[in-house]
Nucleic acid binder design. Structure first.
Lengths: 168, 168
DNA sequence: TAAGATTGACATTTCAATCTTC
DNA sequence: GAAGATTGAAATGTCAATCTTA
């Protein structure tokens, strides 16, 4: 259960206290919930979240297919890591890789019926945790604030990934 | 960049839409920010966040020392995993392990001066990302809502880890 | 017997090198 | 030469087994 605690009281850095508390809460809630979901999946004899992430990303892609490189970018995973994860999923008959018709170098990942069925089973467990732990402890107004504020942070962080602060 | 997307529109599960959006935002913001922090640490020739987490947990503990088991529990790490991580930190002179005076089985992890110095260097980089990406895109009111709501979720999830829903 | 900590076997991920196609 | 994908080596984490002490 992660504690990436910050410590402004040791070395002040100009990050306001409410933001430090908020970041700490994001880290802790994320760690606790992900642990809990993984735990419940294990109890139900289902694969880990990483499999869910891949299957879901393929399922929701237009045409239910997506290029390997794009898939890796949409997950927290390196190219090589995705190749091996896809190997395992393909071995289980959950995923297929098909050569791209328009680009001889590339491959499309597609999901099988068995993959879709597994996705439903996993989502049944996953969503139960969200209902009992997340939705049960947060009201709708708070949920809307969290959604809009953190989505803004995500965009700001992505946008700033390549640039540097001018005066530095 | 993680996308643990949910998909209520495929299989409704009673999780309200605002909460699904909020959870999605938590996952994405967490993934993007952690990636960004790790990236900046690498650019600065500093160790990964996992080292920061350990050093910080020891630094903030009363007496600047903490038992190995308690330390592992406070992080997202197994016992064995912590032992090996501590081996690396000790090898670099950042951490020490001392036999517990009150319990012959246990060990206290303590942080060295070199460890404290590294912690400051890492926090300088870490906090810069928080300032530029997190604090810059969220106002104080939102930060307070995020902090209180997600802390409530954390407590609810921890409390519910061992119990089951009665009617199930 | 149970708890704290470590170890070894194993699974997973990253990184750099490679191969193929654009 | 650059991009998409795979591969092997090395790093890191988990799990079960072990050892020591309570």
């Amino acid at each position: 259960l992660a504690n990436y605690f910050c410590y402004d009281w040791i070395m002040p850095t100009g990050v306001p206290e409410p933001h430090l508390s908020a970041w700490r809460a994001v880290l802790n809630a994320h760690a606790v919930l992900v642990d809990r979901i993984e735990h419940e999946l294990t109890l139900a004899n289902l694969p880990p979240l990483s499999w869910y992430d891949v299957l879901w990303a393929v399922r929701r892609a237009p045409g239910r297919r997506i290029r390997m490189a794009q898939l890796a970018d949409s997950l927290t995973l390196s190219r090589g890591g995705l190749t091996k994860l896809a190997d395992r999923l393909e071995r289980e008959g959950l995923l297929r890789r098909e050569p791209a018709d328009d680009d001889g170098r590339g491959f499309y990942a597609t999901i099988t019926d068995k993959g879709v069925a597994l996705l439903r089973q996993m989502w049944a467990v996953y969503s139960r945790v969200l209902r009992q732990s997340f939705a049960a402890s947060i009201d709708e107004c708070e949920a809307q604030v969290i959604a809009s504020a953190l989505a803004r942070t995500e965009r700001a962080t992505r946008a700033g990934t390549s640039r540097r602060t001018p005066a530095e």
